[in-house]
Simulated assay, not measured.
Amino acid sequence: MTLENLNTRQELRDLIDAYAILGDERKISEQMNLFTKDANYKVYMNGQLLANTLGTDTLEKEFRGHASQVKTYFTLNGQHTVALKGDTATGVSFTQIKMIRETEGKDVLTDYSVRYDDNYVHRDGKWLIKARTGHFMIIEARSISN
């Protein structure tokens, strides 16, 4: 493995970590800068396609709408593997996402175990997400007390 290869892998890891951090901080406009303008974002839950969004303009609106319903986000990234091919790459990452929403006056914690399948492109000196498919594998919700 070359030093260039290692650097690219680190840049891609930094990209998915930045995605999580900006989401947790609700910096959605900044988060959109991690995608190509024509990015495709899909979400599957229980094997069913729930969302298929094209372009960062639409994606930003959807993310903002979702964020308006969430009191707190907490994301933890785990494994991340990539396959490099010139100025493109594919990646698989695993993530735990916790969200707190208020339902009927009670805080409800939903814990998601997610596998992301990504396609990346290198443009203008940086790596961007071209396509991201989230497979929400395990979903658990419960009331919590603060």
Results as ranks from 00 to 15, higher is better:
V114S: 02
F35R: 02
I139R: 10
F136T: 04
D87S: 13
T110K: 10
T8Y: 04
G91M: 03
W127G: 07
D38N: 12
I28C: 01
K130D: 11
N146C: 07
N119Y: 00
T72F: 13
E60W: 01
T90R: 08
E4I: 13
G125A: 11
V82I: 05
L50R: 12
E60F: 02
G65P: 03
T88F: 01
G125V: 09
F63C: 04
E102C: 06
D17T: 10
L12A: 03
D57C: 04
H80V: 01
E4Y: 08
M1P: 10
V108I: 15
G86T: 09
L6A: 14
D117F: 01
S68K: 15
V43M: 10
E140G: 10
I138A: 10
K27H: 13
S29W: 00
I16E: 06
D38L: 05
E62L: 12
T2Q: 12
V70Q: 09
D87L: 06
G134F: 01
K130N: 10
K85V: 00
M45I: 12
H122P: 01
H66M: 12
K61S: 12
E140N: 15
L22T: 11
A131L: 05
T81R: 00
R64I: 14
K85W: 00
Y116E: 04
F63P: 01
V82E: 06
I16K: 08
Q48F: 05
H66Y: 12
S68Q: 15
W127T: 06
I16Y: 09
Q79A: 13
V43R: 05
L12C: 02
S143W: 00
D111T: 15
S29N: 12
G23P: 01
N119P: 00
G65M: 09
L15V: 06
Q69G: 08
Y116R: 07
F94T: 09
G55Y: 05
K98M: 12
R9C: 13
L34S: 07
A51W: 04
A131F: 00
R123T: 13
G23V: 02
R123P: 02
N7T: 15
F35G: 01
S29R: 14
K61A: 15
M99R: 10
K42W: 00
L54H: 14
S143T: 15
I144T: 12
L54T: 15
A89P: 03
Q10E: 14
F94G: 02
T90M: 04
S145E: 14
E60V: 07
V114E: 05
E25M: 13
Q10P: 00
A89S: 08
Y112V: 11
A89V: 04
I144R: 12
N52A: 10
D111W: 04
G55Q: 04
R9F: 01
I28K: 02
H122N: 10
H80G: 01
V114N: 02
T110G: 08
A141V: 00
Q31I: 02
Q31N: 12
N7R: 14
D57V: 11
S113H: 11
S68H: 11
N52E: 15
T58F: 06
G134T: 01
G23K: 04
E4M: 13
V82N: 06
M137C: 08
W127I: 04
K71F: 02
L12Y: 05
D87K: 12
I139E: 11
L84K: 06
G125C: 08
T103K: 15
E104P: 00
E30Q: 15
D14M: 09
D17R: 07
K85A: 14
I21S: 07
L12K: 02
Y19N: 04
M32S: 11
L49I: 06
G23I: 02
